[in-house]
């Protein structure tokens, strides 16, 4: 079934074209949603907030983007229980907008890290795990300076109980609590992850495990 996917575009978003390519290759129709404009939730089946350096990552990653006009519509879309995927900077924006719990801090070694990671699938109750099975490992690339997931102990406990931990690192590269690489909200319709599935579609890219997401 061909989906209509909204892909947000902030000043400084870099992975919008990559995400659009990913969805097109899977037979879906992806459209850009400009940060200054609101949109009608009924016009889209799914939303993706791609990676990049929105607003230069200034002040805090995702902080300035989270407070733009388009996010008002994103919030409405979320409240309707429709699926949203935040990738890397997109994950940071969703946390800043409080659509996902916790925050992403600077990597523990204080450096940007680019590399391949083996991830473990912890839960599959969300719209982006239809081809995954619990316990499966997948190989995806990361490229981020602020990927250390933090939440207070109460929040973490709730997340564990409500099966909100989606993906974990086998070799934690950034100090994330509980080795968290990807999470969902309590309703399981909003997902965020630091690795880039749109960069793992073919063997020549280094892995085709992005194929497990759609």
């Amino acid at each position: 079934m061909s989906l209509k996917v909204g892909v947000t575009r902030f000043l400084g978003t870099n992975c919008d074209q990559d995400v659009r390519q990913w969805f097109s290759l899977n037979g879906h129709k992806a459209e850009y949603l400009w940060f200054e404009d609101q949109f009608n939730s009924n016009d889209y089946d799914m939303l993706v907030i791609p990676g990049g350096f929105s607003h230069g990552d200034y002040l805090r990653c995702g902080a300035l983007a989270a407070r733009t006009n388009v996010m008002k519509s994103v919030r409405e879309f979320a409240n309707k229980g429709k699926p949203i995927l935040g990738i890397c900077n997109g994950f940071q924006i969703l946390c800043e907008a409080e659509l996902l719990p916790g925050a992403l801090l600077r990597n523990k070694d204080l450096r940007f890290i680019d590399g391949w990671q083996t991830l473990k699938v912890e839960n599959t109750t969300n719209a982006f795990s239809k081809k995954m099975s619990v316990g499966q490992t997948i190989k995806l690339p990361i490229a981020h300076g602020e990927g250390q997931f933090y939440a207070d102990s109460e929040t973490l406990k709730k997340m564990v109980d409500q099966k909100q931990i989606w993906l974990t690192y086998e070799n934690n590269p950034n100090g994330s609590m509980l080795n968290i690489s990807g999470i969902t909200n309590a309703k399981h319709n909003i997902c965020g992850l630091m690795p880039h599935p749109e960069r793992a579609l073919f063997d020549w890219m280094g892995s085709s495990d992005g194929g497990f997401f759609l």
């Binding site: 607003h55 230069g56 200034y58 002040l59 300035l64 407070r67």
Partner: peptide, 10 residues
Amino acid sequence: DSQGRAIEES
């Protein structure tokens, strides 16, 4: 001050 500029404009 590129950081200040971006925050100011936003």
